[in-house]
């Protein structure tokens, strides 16, 4: 199949960047989107041009590196699909495809389609962890968790940190990512010890990064390749309110009478 690609090219973070149009004649509808970019890059290398820089690692939808804006939709807009899993079948022969990096002040463009998502890492460092005693693995079933709770926590744990929620949000807010992490911990007993401290610290860090503020557009939920629900955001908000509720012990946990 033939494709016309308008791709954002930017040499480095300082470069102003511009769109460059490429015509690709030997794309195949069984290729994934990244394989198509590989073919394009092969042609560019043969012509002695700089290949298009994009991030990728697993190519099976679990590492979260391959995010890009494709015709105005994060990851190309196929439900529950990352760019690496997006088949060219999704496009018509002869299609015009515009490919841009995530646009967010918190995600500066490093090169072409690669952005720096370290802001996410700093949010995780602020509180996206639990403290446990290391040593032998604990015996099975010593901590009982109902199946529904475990399943829901797993749904939230599916977040791969790709940044599509921020990229798709008209406000550039990072609520879905952050809340997926917080909700995952807040559902499980292991997450309770640091619950209050965690939500305060992670929201506080989000505030220091250059993300926008959520106004419940719900665009993130549609864009998320892992189909994380905005119920995660509601849960995080609930936890936030609880953490600041008068009479709570400093640093989390309930008062012990």
């Amino acid at each position: 199949m033939k494709l016309t690609l308008h791709i954002w090219r930017q040499k480095n973070p300082q470069d102003k960047g511009r769109f460059v149009t490429y015509h690709l004649d030997d794309a195949d509808e069984d290729m994934s989107f990244l394989e198509m970019l590989d073919v394009l890059n092969q042609h560019l290398i043969e012509k002695g041009e700089e290949p298009v820089a994009f991030e990728n690692d697993c190519r099976e939808g679990i590492c979260g590196m391959c995010g890009m804006m494709i015709n105005g939709l994060a990851h190309g807009g196929m439900k529950g699909t990352t760019t690496c899993q997006l088949p060219l079948r999704h496009f018509k022969d002869g299609a015009d495809i515009t490919i841009e990096p995530w646009r967010s002040r918190a995600f500066p463009v490093m090169k072409d389609l690669i952005v720096d998502r370290s802001a996410f890492d700093r949010i995780i460092q602020a509180g996206g962890y639990i403290s446990v005693n290391t040593g032998n693995a604990p015996d099975a079933n010593t901590v009982l968790i109902s199946r529904d709770t475990a399943e829901l926590a797993m749904d939230y744990a599916e977040c791969i940190g790709c940044g599509a929620c921020v990229a798709a949000c008209p406000n550039g807010a990072s609520m879905l990512f952050m809340s997926a992490k917080i909700a995952h911990f807040s559902l499980l007993p292991q997450g309770q010890v640091e619950a209050d401290k965690r939500v305060k610290a992670m929201v506080g860090q989000m505030q220091k990064e250059a993300f926008g503020a959520c106004t419940n557009y719900t665009e993130c939920e549609v864009a998320c390749p892992k189909e994380i629900s905005i119920s995660a955001i509601a849960r995080m908000n609930h936890d936030y309110l609880k953490a600041f509720w008068p009479g709570r012990a400093v640093g989390g946990g309930k008062h012990v009478a």
Binding site: M69, N71, G72, L73, E100, R103, P170, Y217, E219
Partner: peptide
């Protein structure tokens, strides 16, 4: 920096 093309199906 704005997107050249941006669709907001949910808004």
């Amino acid at each position: 920096v704005k997107y050249k093309i941006k669709k907001d199906p949910a808004v």
